[in-house]
């Protein structure tokens, strides 16, 4: 049976992770490669790196991070943040990532999805989307871009369906309302999108406890759950989350837990 994935998200700025302040264990604080190694050995199923670097010359630092991660961890990982061209996608994939994720740029120029899927296959192209509850939209949710600061006129459900039609192989769905609250994922929008599209949906935003993760995998019909603060700040380990899920009857990979 296909197992639900637990994915750790690392925000990287100028080669350092930005949420690594109280990271547990004997690792270099804020070093994304060390953090990735630690999560890999702790049983994580997948990793996501978001490059929140502003300038283009610092993007090569991110490619170095990607290449080093690829040398040291042997689970899939994706890279996103500011990717706007097929050439940028190629560089990230050649550095060793399995997938690239596009978000605001895809809203501005949806053809990047078609071009990426044609060049590398649908399985390599992830659509990241930030959504906000808005009763004026047909599905009740609006797509927002630029890290949630800029509303668009796109409906969340329509955009998800269009992106999959264009070739997105997976969707990472982030609720701006829930993000940073640690009071739980938005299960409603997750279920809405996950049941409507043919590709896997990764829930993001709001995780604070293993119970929240269980809720979004079950009630939100998510295929995978993204976690960040709850593991970065040492409140829970990957093993804590997975053992809780297994006890709740949710199929997860228990190999390699420490």
């Amino acid at each position: 049976m296909l197992e639900k994935r637990i994915i750790v998200c690392l925000d990287v700025r100028e080669g350092k992770t930005t949420k690594g302040i109280k990271f547990r264990g004997n690792v270099d604080i804020g070093d994304p490669v060390e953090m990735a190694r630690s999560y890999y050995h702790g049983g994580v199923d997948e990793l996501v790196f978001y490059d929140i670097t502003a300038s283009s010359e610092q993007r090569s630092v991110m490619l170095d991070v990607v290449a080093e991660v690829a040398r040291q961890i042997f689970v899939p990982f994706s890279v996103g943040g500011g990717i706007a061209t097929v050439d940028q996608m190629r560089r990230v994939l050649l550095a060793g990532a399995e997938k690239v994720s596009v978000n605001s740029q895809a809203v501005k120029d949806p053809l990047i999805i078609d071009q990426g899927a044609a060049a590398f296959g649908n399985q390599c192209v992830v659509l990241g989307m930030d959504v906000q509850a808005d009763h004026e939209m047909p599905s009740g949710y609006r797509v927002v871009i630029n890290g949630g600061r800029t509303p668009t006129d796109r409906d969340a459900l329509q955009w998800a369906l269009e992106a999959v039609d264009r070739g997105a192989g997976e969707i990472v769905l982030n609720s701006i309302d829930a993000d940073g609250t640690t009071s739980g994922y938005d299960c409603r929008v997750t279920r809405l999108i996950s049941e409507a599209v043919s590709v896997p949906v990764v829930a993001s935003g709001g995780a604070g406890t293993p119970q929240h993760v269980a809720e979004v995998l079950r009630d939100g019909a998510a295929d995978a759950a993204l976690v960040a603060s709850m593991v970065h700040y040492g409140s829970y380990s990957i093993a804590d989350i997975k053992r809780y899920l297994a006890a709740e009857g949710i199929a997860v990979r228990l190999d390699g837990l420490v």
């Binding site: 049976m1 197992e3 994935r5 192989g169 043919s198 590709v199 295929d223």
Partner: peptide, 10 residues
Amino acid sequence: LKIPHMGWNQ
């Protein structure tokens, strides 16, 4: 079922 079959399986 979702296609592709993507993720960890036994």
